[in-house]
Design a protein around this nucleic acid. Structure first.
Lengths: 135, 135
DNA sequence: ACGTATTTGTACGTATGTATC
DNA sequence: AGATACATACGTACAAATACG
């Protein structure tokens, strides 16, 4: 399947949809490497820039991670999850500094748990820390 | 303040830091419009592409929103917040389709609340729906 | 109501740097 | 050391939406 330049939807969004469908359909299973940007561009008849925009969308959705070795389909384990009994929870994308400091993966939001006024920033690895007993 | 090409940090990250500092220092208060990409590029002596990358970072962090009228500093009210008593909570960035369907702003993650096996996708406006009594 | 200016969006190109294999 | 692949940064051009006189 390839993108359609005559379609009114932007090429990079079309391409993102195509790749997302392959991932959700398990045609591209977790851990699988995506084709190189250059190869993707040739295969689809678009510029590398367009491919990069599509990749950026999926990275932003937390579907893939990108490194110098290429883009790979993410594993479910990367999902941010917390157990709470009560309180208020905020979610947002971390700054790069927070990502480094807390060891957060690309595309993974941070959760801010507020309990009795105090706010605490957490990340996936901290899961066990923020269990709040509701006794 | 301008970016420093001799610095080893990428220009677009430097620029993102500069703008973020202005926002956090309330020099650019909520609702304030940022300079146009073109003007920013000239002022900083970089390409528009570089400015757009910086802007994209801040948008991704949920600090600003961008429309055809320009980029504006976001208001705190856009933060995703939920009240829960128990359960498991996942957070991730929504697809564009979800953003449209649920009316989610740019840079705002969705929260998935799982309670007794059932998973439910929520967004800020649904706040009142997912209050789970912990009796 | 209409045309113009502004501003972001999309898409292409090139070149070079840097990390990894 | 060489090839591969992503990152950064520049350029251009046109489209599309919005704002303005």
């Amino acid at each position: 399947m390839t993108v359609d330049p005559s379609d009114d939807r932007p090429l990079y969004k079309q391409l993102a949809d195509l790749i997302r469908a392959r991932i959700n359909g398990n045609e591209l299973p977790p851990g699988q490497r995506l084709p190189a940007e250059h190869d993707f561009a040739e295969e689809q008849g678009v510029s590398r820039d367009t491919v990069r925009q599509a990749i950026a969308i999926l990275r932003n959705e937390g579907l893939i991670v990108t490194s110098k070795r290429g883009s790979h389909v993410k594993k479910r384990a990367d999902l941010t999850a917390v157990h709470v009994a009560m309180g208020e929870i905020h979610a947002r994308m971390p700054t790069e500094e927070e990502r480094k400091k807390l060891g957060i993966h690309q595309g993974v939001p941070v959760l801010i748990v507020e309990c009795e006024g105090r706010a605490e920033e957490i990340h996936p690895a901290d899961r066990t820390f923020i269990k709040i007993d509701r006794g």
